[in-house]
Each structure stands twice: as C-alpha cells, then as structure tokens.
Nucleic acid binder design. Structure first.
Lengths: 177, 177
DNA sequence: CTCCTATTTCTGTCTATACTGAAATTACTG
DNA sequence: CAGTAATTTCAGTATAGACAGAAATAGGAG
C-alpha cells in the first residue's frame, strides 16, 4: 500500500473533501478512506508515506478515528508497531458514526430544547410565539430521535432489509394508517 | 425583536454552535435561528443590531440561507427595505435541508463511486479487494439514496405519520420479510 | 438627472484550526 | 539497566475561512 492506484487515490481524495463538509478534518477522513480500502492493517509510518503528511498528524488523526469507534489497533506477530484497521462493514460503520453524531449533537440539542420550552412555559407567557416555535422544533427532534432508536435496536440485517424494502413502504403505510 | 429574551438568546447561540458542527458557519446558523423564532419578517439592519455582527456579514449570510432555500425575501407595504423570513414548518424545513445536502454531498459521492467501481472493473482486475470495498460502499449509498427518495416523494403528512409509527415498524417488517 | 437609501461586493484583518518538526515519553529487547 | 524503536505531546507556524469596514452598485423618489 505504499503508492496508491489511480482509483484509490481518487476515492481517498474525495473522501477527504467530503469529510470537511461534515465537520471532520481532511486528513482524518483521508486516513479513514485509506484504511477502509486497505486489505491489511497499516502502521502509522505507511500512512505517513502514502498520504504525505506529518507523522504526528497521523498519530492525532488515528486517535480521533478511534474516538469515533471506527478504527482500532491490531498487532502483527513479530512487529512491535501498532497497526490500524478500519471497520469494514459499511452498514455497521455508518451505524456507529450516526450513533456518535446523535450522542454529540442531537442529544444536547434535545436537552436544550426541553430546557427552553420548560423555561418559556414557566415565564409570564408573554412570548407565546417563541414557545410555540420551540415546541414544534422539540417535537420534531423527539420524533426523529425516537424513530432512530427504533431502527437502531434492530439487528443489522433487519435494518438492511427494512431499508431495502423501498417501494413497499408507502403501501404498508397505506394499510397501517 | 431588538433585544432577545433569555430563552431566545439561549436557542440562537446553541443553534450557532450546532451549525459549526454541521459545516455551516456560526453567523449563518444564528441568523436562521433568529428568523425562525421571529413572529414577523426582519430586515437586515434589525438582524445586525440583534446579533451584533457586521451588516456585510448579515448580507452574505442571508444570501447563503436563500441558497439553501430556507429563507426568503418578503416586502412590507410602505417600506423599501427587503425583509426576510424563515420557513416555519419544521418538517418542511428539514426536508429542504436534507434535499440540498443530498444534492451537494451524496449525489457527487454516488457519481464518484460509480466511476471508481467502473474503472476498477475495466482494469486488469489485479485489485479485486479495492473493487469489492468500493462496490460495498456504492451499494450502501445507492440503497440509502433510493430509500430517501421514497420518503421524499411522500406528502409531508404521510412522512410524518410514517415516522411517528415508531414501534410498529418492526412488527410490519416481520410481516413483510 | 440627482439625491438618498438599501444592498452587495471587495479587500484587508483576524481567529480558529490544521499541521509540522522537535522533544519527551513509553515500552520493548538484549 | 542501557539502548533503541515507536508513539505521543508540545510549541510554533501556516492556512482557510469568518468577519469588519469601506467602497461600489442598484434602484427608486422627487
């Protein structure tokens, strides 16, 4: 994996750009893409060379990827260095990432909205409009969070089946509503 | 809307922070929060004063919000200034945002993955592993995009009903699988 | 046409974050 | 318990993006 093929490079670079749009830094996303493609775990030095970034940068980025729970350290017999490998199952991968984003971003927002709605209800009710808007927002977040938890609880293959149903959803809904 | 209440300020500031985590800049998100809460359309000067940011910054941010399709210009009789109002229906709001994010981020990735898979199939097939990984990723994106399109096509109230079904999803799945 | 108000564009500054290279730490090996 | 390899931490630097203020533009109203 010293040098990348044309296709590999294309994917790694694109993934890096995508990362920035989702609030992940470019190098972190590139390393993830590289590990995702790699048939075997890589050690930090290999990553450094392949992506031409500083060794320290790789170290920091790997820590972050481990924090997300999508990269883990493995060891190779007779080699003292840490090797890193990405979770390979794409469905599992996105499930982990979504869980983490929910925890970091949605849950705090839910908590804040609850506080805001509570506070604005206790107040002299002079500001009915604000309360109403916030309540609508809160309802949306609660509904979506609840729904996600449902999907989340399904075993992966059930979730895949569910999503792949596609066209039948609306029909089922017609029956159930 | 010159000065914000405690609750309003709390929400606006939080929404600003959230924005940064989703790749939207803080001011843009704050302005959106402000317009979302405001019972009446606001003109740029009001926003400038309420949020204490430069007039030019407000102008740019409003353009970006219009680009997302969640804020539009309206006019008030006898007032030459542009007034701005946010889309108020939360479900509609997120639908628009998701559509836009899909268009900007998912669709290009889909296209790229198709290219990569095609290219790596034409090649001497020396790199079966890369092709396999990319194909798995592509399958995931295609499935999710197709699924989203299904939901997307539903009228809003059907989509809401669907999501609110919650607990019954798994039961239905059991019947349908 | 000229004045006036509203809005946008532009340019330079500032700030937050990414990144590097070096130093420090950790943890193995003989 | 050296000596060495691997990793992490740290401190300074570079860069991208956000932002302010000024200048330019647009678009009435008289």
């Amino acid at each position: 994996m010293a040098a990348l093929t044309h296709v590999q490079e294309k994917f790694v670079l694109h993934w890096g750009e995508m990362g920035t749009k989702w609030g992940v830094n470019r190098t972190v996303a590139q390393i993830h893409a590289l590990l995702f493609l790699s048939p075997k775990p890589l050690h930090a030095e290999e990553i450094t060379e392949t992506l031409s970034v500083a060794r320290s940068n790789v170290s920091t980025s790997l820590k972050e990827l481990q924090g997300w729970g999508i990269v883990k350290v493995v060891h190779v017999m007779g080699d003292r260095r840490d090797h890193y490998e990405s979770m390979k199952d794409v469905w599992e991968l996105f499930r982990v990432v979504l869980d983490e984003r929910k925890r970091r971003e949605i849950d705090p927002t839910l908590a804040l909205l609850r506080e805001c709605v509570a506070e604005s209800s206790q107040g002299k009710s002079e500001d009915a409009h604000t309360r109403e808007r916030l309540a609508a927002m809160l309802d949306f977040f609660e509904t979506m969070a609840g729904w996600y938890d449902q999907i989340r609880r399904m075993p992966t293959d059930a979730a895949i089946k569910f999503v792949k149903m596609g066209g039948r959803i609306q029909k089922l809904l017609g029956l159930a509503s």
